[in-house]
């Protein structure tokens, strides 16, 4: 149904993006209610799920001062079991990291250095994610997709939002949404079905030199994965040492 609305208005919206840069006649930013509705529908579905598992391919730019861009990437495997369990493995070109949250503690493991850090966190997912950001200064890639997030506050600073059209990601027709914010612009492709699953994310850090981009292709969404509690418990590998977190923004 949404698609039919889109087909009639899509071209006009794209034209609006090109011509008006998302600004209405009154000079105020335009946020398309259709784009917001799809975004919120997607959020609601994922955030109601008791168990979620997905995989993602992430690529990101490194900009050298010459303007030359290098692209690096990694593969993410993320599982969440509410109220507060998270396990994530990120195998990247430059680092391999794992995060375990058992509902009480979060452990961040770095494979190259063979070290891990632990912080105590609230029982629920959202609180745990917030504690990671505020007390330890890190976040899990794409965790924003599954919880009410520190990142979502940025969503409240959306300056404009557009519905671009229906475009395929890995063969699946998706609602292509485009938003702008003060520091980043982002695009989201959400599956055109009752499942409203995010399939792709592109973030443009427009205020940084060379406007590096972060791209994630999300696949293998599963809302009934087998997730035994033991999966969320960190067992230090041989020789691993615990280290502390420096307080974000300053010394220990």
């Amino acid at each position: 149904m949404i698609r039919s609305i889109v087909r009639t208005t899509g071209a006009a919206l794209v034209a609006g993006l090109v011509l008006g840069a998302g600004v209405t006649g009154q000079g105020r930013p335009h946020i398309d209610p259709l784009a917001m509705r799809i975004l919120k529908a997607s959020d609601a579905l994922i955030q109601q799920a008791e168990r979620v598992h997905f995989r993602a391919r992430i690529n990101y730019d490194q900009v050298l001062p010459t303007g030359q861009k290098l692209q690096f990437g990694g593969d993410l495997d993320l599982a969440v079991k509410r109220p507060g369990r998270i396990v994530a493995t990120y195998r990247g070109d430059l680092d391999v990291k794992k995060v375990f949250c058992d509902g009480k503690r979060v452990t961040l493991y770095d494979q190259a250095a063979n070290v891990y850090g632990v912080i105590q966190v609230p029982e629920k997912l959202d609180g745990a994610v917030r504690a990671m950001a505020e007390e330890a200064g890190f976040s899990i890639p794409l965790i924003d997709l599954v919880c009410v997030r520190p990142g979502f506050e940025r969503f409240s600073r959306i300056q404009s939002g557009h519905y671009v059209g229906v475009h395929r990601i890995a063969g699946v027709p998706c609602h292509h949404l485009a938003f702008t914010g003060p520091k980043v612009d982002w695009q989201l492709w959400i599956e055109d079905s009752v499942r409203f699953l995010p399939r792709k994310v592109v973030i443009t850090h427009k205020t940084l030199p060379g406007a590096p981009q972060y791209v994630a292709w999300i696949r293998e969404w599963d809302f009934a994965p087998n997730l035994p509690d033991a999966l969320f418990t960190f067992r230090p590998p041989a020789g691993a040492d615990e280290i502390e977190f420096l307080k974000p923004g300053g010394k220990k």
Partner: peptide, 28 residues
């Protein structure tokens, strides 16, 4: 580093810098 690793690209303000470029881990 946060930009590379963090959720949604970390929202970091900085150019990404590989941290693991060591002799033992010659990725680049």
């Amino acid at each position: 580093a946060q930009y590379a690793w963090g959720g949604w690209g970390g929202w970091g303000t900085g150019i990404y810098v590989p941290q693991q470029m060591t002799q033992a881990h010659p990725v680049v």
